[in-house]
Simulated assay, not measured.
Amino acid sequence: MYFIIFICFFIFQRLSELYIAKQNQKWLLQQGAVEYGREHYPYIVAMHTLFIVSIIAEYYYRGEPPLQPVFLGIFILLLLFKFWVISSLGKYWNTRIFRVPNASPVVKGPFKFLRHPNYVEVICEIAIIPLIFQLYYTAIIFTILNAIMLTVRIRVENRVWSK
């Protein structure tokens, strides 16, 4: 029962983020934003979709392992951090890479301390979420895939902001 509630919440959260990103994308484009990294974005979507599928598959394959409260607590803290990141970026937050001409990078909130706090959060999330239900294969495989994906993405983003 806990798993079904959790996975429904997680899927709803991800869909909500996509909705916010779509709304922000409209605003960004109205400001003259240019999108970068389009070629790798479908791979990011595929990886995150397969991440959810893998969580569900491994959970049932492993015989419905119990919830681990410590990792659930860490996940809740990660959500609070994510909300801080999103609220700090405001209309600039997106799942895609956009740059509005003459705009400077955001330097408030967690961006005062970290260059890419949103990616730090995603790294932690990919590793922690499967551990809530002892899904070690998903945690390991998707942590590696995410590291590869973020290597590409951060390079693109750094290039965009160095112009």
Rank of each mutant, 00 (worst) to 15 (best):
F111M: 05
F111C: 07
F111Q: 05
K112Q: 15
F113S: 04
L114K: 05
L114F: 08
L114C: 08
R115K: 13
R115Q: 15
H116A: 08
H116I: 07
H116P: 05
H116N: 08
P117G: 02
P117R: 01
P117H: 04
N118Y: 02
N118G: 08
Y119P: 06
Y119L: 07
Y119D: 07
Y119E: 07
V120N: 08
V120W: 12
V122R: 06
C124V: 07
C124S: 11
C124K: 09
E125Q: 11
E125L: 11
E125A: 13
I126V: 14
A127Y: 05
A127F: 06
A127L: 08
I128G: 00
I128V: 09
I129T: 09
I129M: 07
I129W: 03
I132A: 06
I132W: 07
F133D: 01
Q134N: 15
Q134T: 14
L135G: 01
L135H: 02
Y136K: 11
T138R: 01
I140L: 13
I141D: 01
I141E: 04
F142N: 01
T143M: 13
I144R: 08
L145P: 04
N146K: 12
I148L: 14
I148H: 09
M149V: 15
M149K: 12
L150F: 09
L150S: 05
T151M: 10
T151C: 10
V152Q: 12
R153N: 00
R153V: 12
R153L: 10
I154W: 11
I154D: 14
I154H: 10
I154L: 14
R155C: 13
R155I: 12
R155D: 13
R155M: 13
V156G: 00
V156T: 08
V156D: 08
E157I: 03
N158K: 09
N158V: 05
R159A: 15
R159S: 14
R159I: 10
